[in-house]
């Protein structure tokens, strides 16, 4: 409910509100199976729908940006990057990132099998929950009631990369939205999810 309203409706409304005809997004093809099939220039109807079975052919570096009023295009310039590429690039180019990606002692509670960070008083504690200091970091950053942290000692970028390379679970496991069945992302995307 939370994600659908925000990510899908919020984004569609925001794009319509400002009249943006092309939106650049950071999605990568290695993230998920339906994204692996998506074009770099991904055409959307006036209702922001993605027609997966009928995508425009995309040859060489020739991108078709033609559209009529109301239609829009989502562009994914990082389509061919992998998660490791992103991390290495951040490392090489010294790009500033949110410190939450790096491990530190933070107040947390355990809920539904996930480690939730207690960021501030917007987060109501449930009965009997007492925040505990743990060395944690985040693999992905969504909205904080939805995003679980992992216990980690990786306090530098290279340590994070090291941990990522040695890990045996996929990157997005911490995110509640992806726990749905195969094909759910395709459906979300058809409805206008980025």
């Amino acid at each position: 409910m939370h994600t659908d309203l925000w990510k899908t409706e919020g984004l569609k409304k925001a794009l319509d509100h400002y009249g943006f005809d092309v939106a650049l997004g950071g999605a990568r093809r290695d993230e998920e199976k339906s994204r692996a099939k998506e074009r770099v220039f991904s055409f959307r109807s006036a209702k922001h729908r993605w027609d997966a079975k009928n995508q425009r052919p995309e040859l060489w570096k020739l991108y078709n940006a033609q559209k009529t009023k109301g239609e829009s295009i989502r562009v994914f310039p990082l389509s061919n990057w992998t998660e490791l590429d992103i991390w290495q690039y951040i490392h090489l180019e010294s790009i500033e990132i949110v410190p939450l990606y790096l491990a530190a002692e933070r107040p947390t509670v355990e809920r539904d099998g996930m480690l939730i960070m207690v960021d501030d008083d917007r987060f109501p504690l449930q009965n009997g929950e007492i925040p505990v200091q743990r060395s944690i970091r985040f693999r992905t950053l969504g909205c904080y009631p939805l995003t679980g942290a992992v216990e980690s000692e990786a306090a530098t970028l290279t340590e994070v990369i090291q941990e990522m390379l040695l890990t045996t679970t996929s990157e997005r496991q911490g995110r509640a939205i992806d726990h749905d069945s195969a094909g759910s992302m395709e459906k979300k995307k058809q409805e206008g999810y980025f």
Partner: peptide, 24 residues
């Protein structure tokens, strides 16, 4: 990105504050 700028009227870059956004 340069193609986007050359061929669109009103482009925008989505920014989620995450690492992919930072790289983009």
């Amino acid at each position: 990105m340069r193609e986007v700028v050359a061929e669109s009227e009103n482009p925008v870059m989505l920014y989620s504050v995450g690492k992919d956004s930072a790289a983009m």
